[in-house]
Nucleic acid binder design. Structure first.
Lengths: 329, 329
DNA sequence: TTGAAAGCGATACCAG
DNA sequence: CTGGTATCGCTTTCAA
């Protein structure tokens, strides 16, 4: 049925040990044995059983990837970065979409562990003491020094967003705050608040308990019920920003004249909507790549120069913001 | 280090065989042995090594999932459906993002096979004779009777889209055609053409060779260079439709007054953009669920009543289409 | 430079 | 009902 290393050995007229050596380029093998083995491999179209390998090595060629919400376009972009990098290293991804469900996160880590994953990259934050033997990189701000992480400059991002709003005749500002358990969201909020205070601008908070795409429209509706007179919003992410913009338009509010908004992430669609969404761009793909890179540096026991990699953010101005105030530059 | 079935056996004072029986609820085990084993399992926090299981059973708890483009929001929605179903069955997903690259598809199938996946769900179409031993469900129309598939009613979808356009004073119609290697795209085109001919409406074709989100904006630009006078478009999918709409607005063309457009898919964002995108809704999540369900029916050797499941599509009218012609009903 | 054989951690057959 | 053991396919000593 399945061709195994024994079949190859038999056809090549050598032992399985020799075949293994050739396959893994380990130990000494004579040129002639090498050729015989390679021919047999080709002839039989043999590919080693990775499960058997994994069992022996106690390490598979899988990287576990945990995402909070695969339907938020920011995360597929991250996933693509991760995938591209791990593929180059000969690894593949085990995907886990967590959806705000700590149970699911735990279950996936358990499964990853039972399957000997080489490491985990997670954009989800839970307490996972139990799995601290698995090499893990967190794609968000972390407070824990012992963890490895890749994130963008959330504080600066928060400031930039607030500043962009402040410079544009903001009378009634509302900050939509991301889930409190997401560290990055808290840092952004700090950036927002510090900046607005510095500029002497009043604001109110609207707390959300999820970034889930599913709830965006509902949340947008609730938001406007509560703040019907808002004229400037700092949204928790682009998905919610777009939903808010749509809700505003639906209510006959003019964007950006009477309602301006800035998002966070710069996901692929943010520039394709109308009005184009102004936002703080996070390099999603690069975050994925860097996360994977960091993980492999750990796996390969390279020296880690930075265990908390921070990437730059950038203010992107599109049509969802008003013109700057005259007196500003 | 890792706790194994032997540790459990030792602690429980029974043999590994008995532990295995308890774990798998197979064969006869006395109540007392059962209790001893369960206690030991709990005490040691033991979870079986899935790799060893997989090696013996020649079948893992993984399902391979192949997607053409994870950055197109339609596919994450499908993936979510697949994931929800396979999770319920105790399985997890191996993810492969193919990106129009037949090599990558082959590589992934190879990897899946080397890792004993239980089955594969693919939204990518290649010739994969070699892997026909792996139970596989295709999420698209297939012509091959031997394959299993889940798809929506592409022909009807094509007709509905064309009809919606035809009923709205279409003077200069262009059909944007999806990649020729995608079966569904060809069927939709047939639906488009048949309907337009029936209505005696002239049209031109604009062939694309990809659905990739990356190329959407570039393609939209090229499109308008070629058809500057178009007033009605049947787009190949929602991503491209949104890009075209944005390009039109950028060029100062009024949507829908001077440029109307209908997409395909109804991805989550289609209703969140402005103007809301009219489209043919495909039940992405349900396609994923049904695909997984079909795959498990195959794996569990249930009787398959339909090996080619077709789901309904639906015309969704939003603001990107003009008002219906007076004389129509 | 090579091969025999001992595992890796489960499962399941076969005896008892 | 229970336990001993061969086995899944591969890697890696160890000895030759």
């Amino acid at each position: 049925m399945m061709t195994t290393i024994r079949d190859v050995a038999k056809l090549a007229g050598v032992s399985v040990a020799t075949v293994s050596r050739v396959l893994n380029e380990s130990g000494y093998v004579s040129k002639s044995s090498q050729e015989k083995v390679n021919q047999a491999v080709k002839k039989l179209d043999y590919y080693p059983n990775e499960v058997a390998r994994s069992l022996f090595q106690k390490k598979s060629n899988f990287i576990g990837l945990l995402l909070p919400d695969i339907t938020n376009p920011f995360f597929p972009a991250v996933a693509k970065g991760v995938e591209d990098y791990v593929n180059r290293k000969g690894y593949s991804l085990l995907l886990g979409n967590i959806e705000n469900n700590p149970e699911k996160e735990k279950d996936y880590l358990q499964i990853f562990s039972q399957n000997n994953v080489a490491g985990v990259i997670t954009a989800v934050q839970g307490e996972n003491q139990k799995f601290n033997k698995i090499p893990m990189v967190v794609l968000d701000r972390v407070d824990d020094e012992r963890k490895y992480s890749v994130h963008s400059d959330d504080y600066l991002g928060g400031q930039l967003a607030a500043k962009a709003i402040a410079q544009r005749n903001a009378k009634k500002v509302v900050i939509m705050v991301g889930p409190t358990e997401v560290n990055g969201a808290n840092i952004r909020l700090a950036g927002n608040e510090d900046q607005l205070k510095k500029e002497n601008i009043e604001y109110e908070l609207f707390q959300t308990d999820s970034y889930q795409t599913d709830y965006a429209e509902e949340t947008a509706h609730i938001f406007f019920e509560k703040f019907s007179d808002v004229d400037s919003v700092i949204a928790s992410n682009d998905v919610y920003a777009i939903a808010l913009m749509k809700e505003a338009i639906k209510r006959g509010i003019k964007v950006p004249e009477d309602f301006q908004i800035i998002g966070y992430d710069d996901m692929p669609f943010s520039r394709m909507v109308y009005p184009g969404l102004s936002t703080i761009a996070q390099p999603a793909y690069e975050i994925g790549v860097k996360g994977a890179q960091l993980l492999f540096d750990i796996l390969e026991k390279k020296k880690i120069s930075e265990s908390h990699i921070q990437l730059a953010v950038e203010l992107v101005i599109r049509e969802s913001l008003r013109k700057k105030d005259e007196n500003e530059r």
